[in-house]
Write a protein that binds this DNA or RNA. Structure first.
Length: 592
DNA sequence: CGCCTTTGACCAGCGC
DNA sequence: GCGCTGGTCAAAGGCG
């Protein structure tokens, strides 16, 4: 464990240095190309710079590989610890099996919160809520529970098998280093969107009469129900997100004089993705675009960012359902408390709300009210609010920081790990660690301080244990950065990593993490996927839709020949990590 | 002719 | 059970 940490720090430091170098070269390169337009005789110099950049690219690839290795190592350790804790808990439960379970659940280790998701609940909901949440929470949690519990059941089963627990456990962890991820991918295959709609699926599937089939259907149902809503100021009827849509219906929703338009993706005839477009009743200039489903076909470059965001957000919603339920089950979180927890989530502002009725239920925090998660009973929705201009954004320092940050400092250890979370030199690690330690973060937290530390730790545990959440968060943040970057017309403030030609590369690269700083004192792990701003196959798609189509701005802002020549820090050659992230490609590739 | 939008009808879920 | 609502279907018509 310590060796791993040392490696992580080492990799992080090296990466930081490399990042600074890269920034230097990148800046020089920008300047050089700019000069080329005036003095052609500097072409050779620019080429030399490009060569340097390629060298740096290679070094960064190696560093990334090292970081990924560290990450996997840490993850294995984390799982091992979790397994041990779970085994301990089991033995305790056996001893006190005759006592009411409320206590044992309350005593549950924060790190195990996510593991009990969708399983037994200590806080028995009233029948109404139970019924109400049966479709959404119950089913979706079941799917998540299956997803998570499957893995941990593996561990648990191994510990209870006839073989010695440690031996079996280690065997499982090592031998299944890849199979673990394969298992997850298999588990996530049901995410593949299918059509006809869920209700019809249920109807047909239930004819089979098998319970586990029903569970699978419910799982699919709720995964399909996950939505991503984007609020943006837009004067046109729809936001141009790079995809082709066909309107198939329009309905005037109650409480909103503006009709809601229904679109489906027409890029592929079987594409299950649909979107709803509706003006916000409180501000008609704001367009609410709600996406549902994952594309099962290659996407135009201009559409990859949004697709990645929606895809990742869907995964995030899965995770979130686990999180909130787990917290609730553990007695750590109720609605009001979650609000405070959210407020304490290092300034991240997740607002759980019904996007149409605007009735908050739970809150998590994204920066600048940028994003929110809705937990309407039937449609878990994450909302990306692009109507509020972000603040405290320094694009130049941003890039430095994102390069200098280290994902190797992912901390899966217990909350007791001591860290200097005020350090800005390690923004990402400070971010993660800040959420790991039992102390409030630097920004003045909102009320409910007495719950914050516990919830903070619990939330962090869940987040760090489920990469889906991280991926979704990263996607959302990358979009945030993108929109801001486009607005500022700074090309350099984009993620300095792009994917090559493959239209699916954006989704491919969901597996690849790059630390990104959102503002001067926050940084996050982020994948190039959502922030993929590929330039190698730039499509100068005219933006026929809303001018505020930030994603297209983003893409177009990076579609310049300079970056093409520079070879863009193309990470597509980096050894494919087997990180357990839910990638759209993995799930989509199976579809015809 | 193909694709798209429009629009009324239909269906399923949910609340009372 | 009934009515409301959200979501979808499909026919009709428009447009390039």
């Amino acid at each position: 464990m310590e060796d791993t940490k040392e490696n992580s720090l080492l990799a992080g430091d090296t990466f930081e240095e490399a990042g600074k170098k890269t920034m230097k070269h990148n800046g020089d390169h920008e300047e050089g190309v700019h000069t080329i337009t005036q003095k052609g005789d500097l072409l050779k110099m620019a080429k030399a710079k490009m060569g340097e950049l390629r060298e740096e690219n290679g070094r960064l690839k190696l560093l990334l590989a090292q970081m990924l290795k560290d990450y996997q190592s840490l993850q294995k350790n984390f799982l091992y610890i979790v397994k041990q804790e779970e085994a301990n808990k089991k033995s305790t439960d056996t001893i006190f099996s005759s006592t009411p379970r409320q206590e044992s659940t309350d005593q549950e280790e924060p790190g195990l919160i996510s593991l009990s998701l969708g399983r037994g609940s200590s806080t028995e909901p009233n029948k109404k809520d139970e019924k109400k949440n049966q479709n959404f929470n119950g089913g979706r949690l079941l799917s998540l529970g299956l997803d998570l519990d499957y893995r941990f059941d593996q561990l648990i089963n191994s510990s209870t098998s006839t073989e010695p627990a440690d031996v079996d456990e280690k065997k499982k962890i090592t031998s299944s280093e890849h199979s673990f991820h394969e298992d997850q991918l298999k588990e996530e295959e049901p995410i593949i969107e299918t059509w006809p709609p869920p209700s019809k699926n249920i109807k047909t599937m239930r004819n089979g009469g098998r319970d586990h089939e029903d569970e699978q259907v419910m799982e699919q149902t709720h995964l399909k129900k996950a939505r991503v809503s984007v609020r943006a100021r837009c004067e046109t009827t729809t936001m141009n997100d790079g995809c082709q849509w066909r309107k198939y219906g329009q309905k005037t929703a109650k409480g909103n004089p503006c009709p809601r338009a229904y679109y489906r993706c027409t890029v592929s005839p079987n594409c299950p993705v649909r979107k709803q477009v509706q003006r916000w009743v409180e501000d008609m200039s704001i367009l609410i675009t709600t996406y549902e489903g994952n594309h099962n076909h290659p996407l135009p470059i201009s559409a990859t960012a949004m697709a990645s965001t929606t895809s990742a957000a869907a995964s995030m919603l899965q995770c979130r359902s686990s999180t909130s339920q787990g917290l609730a089950n553990s007695g750590l979180l109720d609605t009001s408390v979650s609000t405070s927890a959210a407020a304490n989530f290092h300034g991240l502002n997740f607002t759980t709300e019904n996007i149409y009725n605007a009735r908050p239920h739970h809150q998590f925090y994204f920066p600048n009210n940028y994003s929110s998660i809705s937990s309407s009973n039937y449609h878990p929705t994450i909302t990306l609010d692009l109507t509020t201009a972000p603040t405290n954004y320094n694009s130049s320092s941003h890039f430095n920081r994102l390069i200098s940050s280290s994902t190797s400092n992912l901390n899966f250890s217990s909350p007791s790990s001591s860290t200097n979370y005020n350090s800005l030199d390690q923004p990402y690690s400070s971010y993660m660690q800040m959420n790991n330690v039992l102390a409030p973060p630097p920004p003045p937290p909102p009320p409910h301080h007495h719950h914050q530390s516990t919830i903070n730790a619990a939330t962090t545990k869940v987040i760090t244990s489920n990469p889906n959440f991280q991926s979704a968060l990263a996607a959302a943040i990358s979009s945030y950065i993108a929109s801001k970057g486009a607005a500022d017309d700074h090309q350099q403030n984009m993620i300095g990593i792009s994917s090559s030609g493959d239209n699916n590369s954006g989704l491919n690269n969901l597996n690849k993490w790059v630390p990104v700083q959102v503002n001067s004192h926050e940084s996050f792990p982020i994948m190039p996927a959502a922030a993929v701003y590929s330039t190698s196959s730039a499509q100068n798609r005219s933006s026929t839709g809303c001018a505020s189509s930030f994603l297209n701005k983003l893409v177009s802002s990076n579609n310049n020949s300079q970056q093409q020549e520079a070879g863009n820090y193309n990470m597509s050659d980096v050894p494919e990590p087997s990180l357990p992230f839910s990638t759209s490609k993995s799930s989509d590739s199976g579809s015809p």
